[in-house]
């Protein structure tokens, strides 16, 4: 079977800065694959190039063997790719349920239906509630998304993406700004989600990444310096020098 995602020789520059320089890796079907690296390593740029929010200068992106390089998001989603955002971007003035139902209706091809009431698209509402229940947000379903606590907003981000029933879910720093307890909770959720879809995770929290990933790819300064199992990565001296060392130094 083809890999869930293959990235080949991806490059992207902003002016003179070569933010991403020949990056390549593959996400195996059913894996939780993490992309890590210090700030400015180019992780988010890679993420945006894959998900259609930036156009790569060079390289290819293959989704289940299909070349989807530079496809816009509204074509990538039917192809099975969904993403979340590092900065929370939920629909603040809509209810929590409606946030997720919007995504479900979008997947069901209802976006251009102009007569039938959205609230009557029962399948979307049922599915949205189901996802909220799985992620523990169901009791907030009728609250405005703006009124959720920060941690819950991050989970709502994931709920919205899941309603698109992706075959590859891309999570952009889902634990940004979270407490240790919340981070652990997200880690468990990600493992649970992995039963449904492959996951590409961009993350800062090293401990969480090593705990929940099947594969890890490490980037610094726009390049991949290592790729492998969490075990191998934590023993890799290159990684220790370039990334873990930097982290340790900061933690001292």
């Amino acid at each position: 079977m083809a890999d869930a995602l293959v990235v080949e020789e991806l490059s992207k520059s902003f002016g003179a800065l070569r933010a991403v320089d020949g990056v390549g890796f593959a996400v195996k079907d059913g894996d939780v694959h993490s992309l890590i690296g210090p700030n400015g390593a180019g992780k988010t740029t890679v993420f945006n190039c894959i998900s259609g929010f930036l156009r790569p200068a060079e390289g290819r992106v293959l989704l289940r063997g299909e070349d989807v390089t530079a496809w816009p998001p509204h074509r990538l989603i039917p192809a099975g790719l969904a993403r979340t955002f590092q900065i929370t971007k939920v629909f603040g003035d809509l209810t929590v349920l409606e946030n997720v139902a919007l995504a479900a209706r979008s997947r069901l091809g209802q976006n251009l239906r102009m007569w039938r009431r959205a609230s009557k698209v029962t399948s979307a509402n049922v599915e949205a509630l189901e996802i909220l229940e799985m992620l523990g947000l169901a009791e907030n379903a009728s609250a405005n998304a703006d009124h959720l606590a920060h941690g819950d907003k991050r989970i709502l981000e994931i709920a919205i993406a899941l309603a698109l029933r992706p075959r590859l879910l891309m999570l952009d720093e889902p634990t940004a700004g979270m407490s240790a307890g919340e981070t652990e909770h997200i880690g468990k959720l990600v493992r649970r989600i992995a039963a449904r879809t492959s996951v590409l995770l961009v993350e800062h929290d090293m401990e969480m990444v090593l705990g929940i990933s099947d594969q890890v790819t490490v980037m610094t300064q726009g390049r991949v310096i290592a790729s492998g199992t969490p075990d191998a990565i934590s023993r890799d001296t290159n990684v220790q020098d370039a990334y873990l060392g930097a982290l340790d130094a900061r933690n001292l």
Binding site: S51, M114, A161
Partner: peptide, 26 residues
């Protein structure tokens, strides 16, 4: 009727957050 339809709701999603709307396939 139009603003209560799926289409109308997607318009409101675009107003609220255009980038997020694009990311759910709108």
């Amino acid at each position: 009727r139009l603003v209560a339809s799926s289409f109308g709701r997607t318009l409101q999603a675009i107003r609220t957050n255009e980038e997020r709307a694009a990311a759910i396939g709108i």
